[in-house]
Design a protein around this nucleic acid. Structure first.
Length: 264
DNA sequence: ATGGCCATCATGGATGGA
């Protein structure tokens, strides 16, 4: 089965691509970030017509997360990880025998910016929420746009990015706490020596970032041990990033053996 | 040396993104 994370950078601005992409990619579970719309404006029919069950937390202009699954959704929780947070950045569901947590992590703008401090607090709350609400013994997938490059080598220019936002030690510390708790970076576990443009998941719109390979690996599937044992591949859909009027992120697919139409 | 693009809301240009 295929579990996709995709920061669409406005779902309404991506409607010229999504129908054909859905029919080609056929995700069993699709985690979307940056919907940039309220729930009433979400294109529910796009998914309903293809047999998807959908849960989402919308928000005007900013953020917004959704999970679409070919199997029914149970135990839907929104507003993660900060209780009462007005920002739509986290949604968790149970579907297809998995506990799926879909995240749009705060960007942070720049080290030292108030938004960066907000990011660190948000990440602390996330780690606490995961420890409280999940267990590494279950079939758990924590995926999404983490806005964290796990190492300097997960950027196109390690020297330039060293210590910058998305790469700072204070951001990586909570990321590592998730790994220490019992999650595994699926891409890195499967491809321990894969670096460079074919490992990146986001490219800068500016300065022809994609053709020049100015990318980062910031969209991740963090999975528990039982899920990692089923992991066959992580695929980065660079063709989608090449499209006209594309998102600046590519869809990233975790392929699992078993329990799904596309399983192996 | 600096910014270089895109989406939103709104209808100009600020804000956010990464």
């Amino acid at each position: 089965m295929r579990i996709v994370t995709f920061n669409v950078n406005s779902i309404r601005a991506r409607m010229h691509l999504l129908p054909a992409w859905l029919d080609r990619a056929r995700p069993d579970v699709l985690c979307l970030q940056e919907l940039k719309c309220e729930a009433a404006d979400f294109p529910m029919e796009l998914f309903a017509q293809r047999g998807y069950h959908v849960a989402l937390q919308g928000q005007k202009t900013y953020n917004g997360v959704a999970v679409a699954s070919l199997t029914p959704l149970d135990d839907v929780r929104t507003g993660l990880p900060l209780a009462g947070d007005a920002e739509a950045r986290g949604i968790a569901v149970r579907t297809a025998g998995l506990h799926i947590v879909n995240l749009y992590v705060v960007n942070g703008k720049a080290v030292g910016d108030p938004k960066y401090d907000h990011k660190l607090r948000w990440l602390d709350a996330l780690v606490d929420w995961v420890a409280r609400s999940c267990t590494p013994e279950e079939a758990l997938v924590v995926c999404g746009d983490f806005n964290i490059a796990p190492t300097d080598d997960d950027t196109w220019d390690p020297a330039a990015w060293h210590g910058e936002v998305l790469c700072s030690e204070a951001e990586r510390a909570p990321f590592r706490r998730l790994l220490d708790w019992g999650l595994h970076d699926a891409f890195r576990a499967l491809y321990p020596t894969a670096f460079g443009r074919y490992a990146h998941t986001w490219w800068d719109y500016r300065g022809a970032g994609f053709p020049r390979g100015h990318g980062l690996r910031i969209d991740h599937h963090l999975v528990s041990a039982s899920v990692l044992a089923r992991a066959a591949a992580v695929e980065i859909d660079r063709d989608m990033r090449k499209s006209d009027k594309a998102s600046d992120h590519a869809p990233v697919t975790l392929v699992l053996r078993g329990e799904g139409a596309a399983g192996g």
